[in-house]
Design a protein around this nucleic acid. Sequence first.
DNA 1: GTGACGTAAACGTCGTACTTATTATTCCCG
DNA 2: CGGGAATAATAAGTACGACGTTTACGTCAC
Lengths: 233, 233
Amino acid sequence: MTTQSQGLHTHVLDTLGLEISSGQCPPGSVLRTDELAQRFDVSRTVIREVIRVLESMHLVESRRRVGVTVRPTETWNVYDPQVIRWRLAGADRPRQLRSLTVLRSAIEPVAAGLAARHATAEQCAELTERALGMVATSRGQQLEGYLEHDIAFHRIVLNASGNEMFARLGDVVAEVLAGRTHHQVMFEDPDPAAVTLHVRLAEAVREGDPEAAERITKEIAVGALHELDVLAP
Amino acid sequence: MTTQSQGLHTHVLDTLGLEISSGQCPPGSVLRTDELAQRFDVSRTVIREVIRVLESMHLVESRRRVGVTVRPTETWNVYDPQVIRWRLAGADRPRQLRSLTVLRSAIEPVAAGLAARHATAEQCAELTERALGMVATSRGQQLEGYLEHDIAFHRIVLNASGNEMFARLGDVVAEVLAGRTHHQVMFEDPDPAAVTLHVRLAEAVREGDPEAAERITKEIAVGALHELDVLAP
DNA sequence: GTGACGTAAACGTCGTACTTATTATTCCCG
DNA sequence: CGGGAATAATAAGTACGACGTTTACGTCAC
């Protein structure tokens, strides 16, 4: 899904990034550019560019005479959407999903409060529209449609907060929601209570009620965390 | 400050990243690899590796036949510590500092609450030590010493939260605090009230009182935001 | 055992040649 | 005169080979 064949660079980067973040190349292990070039059947040029990108994400460290060593997990750029995607696709998806959901539970209530203050009429309208879309797709195994509305909904709230750091978390939230829908066992329709809360949040934002918006979003977050507790060990 | 002459790559990356994030190369403007190679007097190889890194940060987009175009601000990886450093060094430091402080005000209270639950004895000890260090350096123009304790203090709280997303925000907070001390007009000693709150926070964490920890941290955040309002327009 | 020293292994940089995608232009046909 | 298809031009993508530079590691003398 993440792999497009739009260039050798992309393919190699994606493969290596996935291998590293999935723990297949544990921290401390070393890679050699020549070996990689041989393995992927590409020139060392391509490998070097990939390594540089991985290095900028602090996934690896390149040192002379020793090679490219995988760095310890604590140094990864875990906010890089690419890294998040790799990790969610890899082994410790549950742990990752939990960290990210806790992050959401801290950010989104505050963002919703700000959104209630700053949202434009246009944003309010689209928010309501998305909430209705969620209602419409909340029953009858329309998970993909629901997911799309859900992602759009949260993205609007984050954007409407007016804070760029919050806004840029839209991609992260999208990854989390997508990961939850696709990888988690999620046969059933979404929780009706959650759907209702989204509708109420849209109302609170439209009415410019920051306290309510914050409170409702906290409830949504609590629900998401609870869901994780139930579905994942 | 960020530039070490540890390789051409680093130097070129730092220079270009700074120029882009400072708005010197506004979104939409195009760079050519050949020109850059000539300008920095390095081979195209080096330039390409730099471009690839910049591309992974979503600062630029490279397309055939058209060149390397600077992408709009909304797409930048603003959580990348490198990008943060560039932006804090650049033109819109005030705006950036405000966004980041709002982010802190959302994250740190939650992190402090978690820290109160999960902190080890060792972490509590070091936290208290740092709080005392802040007290000791809070008067008499010892700003650098105070800053060091302040950074360490907040880093411990974030780490003790047990959430890796929070923990990785330690670097961001460090940048914010450093930026505030160094670039802001800050002749005076730190606010005594803030110092006291840090001491109380250390106590709350040590006593395992999440509610108090969260509340006190919120007060610290409010103070930081207020400080921004007073010092920057 | 300890220190200086040399060696080789890996990345770092360079230059060039060639390939490919994309845009701009030209030119022919309707 | 206009529009679409063939064509040219351009800049990035890839490959290869060579040399430079750092640095871990083994060796040798003391």
